[in-house]
Amino acid sequence: MRRNRKGTIQPTVSITKPPFEEVVERYYDKVLNLAFRLMGDREEAHDLAQEVFIHAFQAYDRFRGEAEVFTWLYRITVNLAKNRYKQLQREREHRWEILEEMDEEEEETEPFEWEDTKLSPETLLEQKELAEAIQKAIDELPEDQRVTLVLRDIEGLSYQEIARIQGCSVEAVKSRLFRARSALRKKLKPFLER
């Protein structure tokens, strides 16, 4: 038995815990995909996914099965992504300070290489610009809206699952999602009008 937020006692529903190796096998790709959508960078996503499973492994003996393993892993992923995102923002701000002090001569540029593809360079550029604009627009959303949007529109989770992961009501999830989608429409309007 446990008490909910309103103080009423509810029976604890326990879900059978699979072996941890099975958890990793079953959910690694989903956690990696979520990490990529939250971070917007493949290397960061791989690092984050590994960190998620390290944290999960360390806490697995304390996992009581009150929620599905899937929901528990997503909550860990979202929390670690929030922390890492804040850390990266601080690092970027520090990097800009250093770059402003550097002379232009010291900056190195990598040679540009065209990808070998059947699409025209113009089409590739348009696709790249759109992908970058979408990721930038998502990155600029307030944290609660960004996480909600990724979990619903990219990961396809239900409102109830998102509410459990974020520890809020379904109404709050719907409100955050509406605000996030509205903000994205405004930011991406030039691309949508093409």
Rank of each mutant, 00 (worst) to 15 (best):
R95N: 08
D103E: 05
E104V: 09
E115Q: 02
V52Q: 01
F36C: 01
D29T: 06
P18K: 14
P121D: 00
E66F: 10
Q50M: 06
T109L: 07
W96P: 04
R84P: 10
L34R: 13
I134L: 15
L32C: 01
T117A: 07
L48H: 05
E129A: 14
L73T: 10
E68H: 01
M39H: 11
W72H: 09
T77D: 03
D103M: 09
V78L: 04
E115G: 09
L73I: 03
Q89R: 15
Y60R: 02
N83Q: 15
H94R: 13
R75V: 03
R92P: 09
K118G: 00
M39N: 05
E110C: 03
L88Y: 12
K128C: 07
R64P: 10
E22K: 15
Y60S: 00
Y28K: 13
D103H: 12
F70I: 00
E93Y: 04
E122L: 13
L124V: 13
R90C: 00
F63W: 03
P111Q: 13
E122C: 04
E110L: 14
L80W: 11
V23Y: 06
D61T: 04
E43L: 01
A45I: 08
A81W: 10
W114G: 02
G40T: 10
N83G: 13
V24E: 12
E93R: 15
P19D: 04
E51N: 07
F112D: 02
F57D: 01
P19I: 01
E129L: 12
E66G: 04
R84G: 03
R37E: 03
A59M: 00
I76R: 00
K17F: 04
Q87M: 09
K128Y: 09
A49I: 06
G65F: 13
W72N: 13
H46W: 03
E107H: 15
E113C: 01
F36G: 05
L32W: 08
P19V: 03
K17W: 08
R26S: 09
F70P: 01
E115N: 02
D61K: 05
A59E: 00
D103W: 06
R84I: 10
E91Y: 07
R84C: 06
S120E: 11
H46G: 08
F53P: 09
L48M: 10
A49N: 08
Y85M: 02
P19T: 05
W96S: 10
P18A: 09
E21V: 11
F20K: 11
E44S: 01
L73F: 05
P19A: 05
Y27M: 07
W96T: 12
